[in-house]
């Protein structure tokens, strides 16, 4: 079964043991990928379940107090979860429109020369490590915010969200650009031939046609924002309360794990609770992943109807 070829017309002979060894090796090496994903799930579940001995699931998810160092520890993650959601939402609200605008710019508006320059630069920006953004948030954005709005601290939700929004632009922008470029030329021609302006063509034909790709790019950006750690750790402020204003410090799940895992004894309730936080994060990203797979499949169908 392994030897069945998907492409081509020739059916070569497979006889030598070398062939069989190679096929087996490729197969077993690929299994490693499945094992790793399986292990991630297994270890996160295994290490987080014991926390349920110390507290209840609803207390964990909806408890308002996060004082893990006290005895007995208070392990309510509601503020952490709300912080994560709030920062994700706010950074998406900042980052996604900008990403989309940049994608439209590179795909539809920029002259070809400029596009050939901007696209690789945009992609390179995606490689800048998040610690750099976190650092800048700490030493540049925070003091500025603090002075400008006379706040107690510039390390807050607005700061972290703005940085995260910026970090989304290269990833989401590049992917959305690809989705826009995949819209066939003929559709643009048809629209122009009917007397549409460029903006009308973009808005009414190109964007709707690329919608599945744009959505899945955006979801990837949202997923990245949810999982981003260093920016949250350095620029978000770290108060485990539900944010009430843009300038409140927040403590999302990711930075909680990164900040506290180092100082907690292995096997303690706190330790297991942090794994539980990781499990929540993992489940959120898996859900987003699933959603984007659904959208892609639908987009594929939409195209499948085309010639």
């Amino acid at each position: 079964m392994l030897h069945t070829r998907k492409r081509g017309t020739t059916s070569p002979h497979f006889g030598g043991w070398g062939d069989r060894v190679a096929a087996r090796t490729a197969l077993s090496v690929s299994t490693v990928c499945i094992l790793i994903m399986g292990f991630i799930l297994y270890f996160l579940v295994k290490e987080s379940l014991p926390v349920l001995k110390a507290t209840t699931l609803s207390e964990l998810l909806f408890g308002m107090d996060w004082y893990p160092q006290e005895t007995p520890p208070a392990l309510g993650m509601f503020p952490l979860i709300m912080s994560s959601l709030a920062v994700t939402f706010l950074s998406s609200a900042i980052g996604l429109p900008v990403s989309l605008a940049i994608a439209v710019f590179t795909a539809e508006i920029a002259p070809r020369r400029l596009r050939n320059l901007v696209k690789p630069l945009l992609e390179l920006l995606g490689f800048i490590p998040s610690i750099v953004f976190g650092f800048l948030g700490m030493v540049v954005v925070a003091p500025w915010l603090q002075d400008r709005f006379s706040l107690l601290t510039g390390l807050n939700m607005a700061n972290a969200s703005a940085l995260l929004g910026m970090m989304m632009v290269p990833i989401v922008g590049s992917l959305a650009d690809e989705a826009l470029c995949a819209v066939p030329r003929e559709l643009r021609d048809a629209s122009y031939a009917l007397g549409a302006t460029r903006w009308e063509t973009i808005r009414r034909v190109v964007l709707p046609s690329a919608l599945p790709g744009i959505l899945s790019a955006s979801l990837l950006g949202v997923m990245r924002a949810t999982g981003e750690t260093m920016v949250m750790l350095m620029a978000a402020g770290g108060a485990a309360v539900i944010p009430r204003s843009l300038f409140d410090p927040v403590r999302p799940l990711t930075s909680t794990i990164a900040a506290e895992m180092g100082e907690t004894p292995v096997g303690s309730e706190h330790y297991h609770a942090l794994f539980f936080a990781g499990l929540i994060l993992l489940l959120i990203t898996l859900a987003i992943n699933l959603l984007s797979a659904k959208i892609e499949a639908k987009g594929f169908k939409l195209k499948g109807g085309n010639l």
């Binding site: 629209s191 122009y192 031939a193 007397g195 034909v205 085309n306 010639l307």
Partner: peptide, 25 residues
């Protein structure tokens, strides 16, 4: 282009409903 319509070599309907395709112009 409103006065001079065009039909292309390859059929290129927009990925929208039949109605919206015709109503586009």
């Amino acid at each position: 282009r409103r006065r001079v319509g065009m039909v292309f070599q390859k059929p290129n309907p927009f990925p929208m409903s039949i109605y919206e395709n015709v109503a586009y112009g």
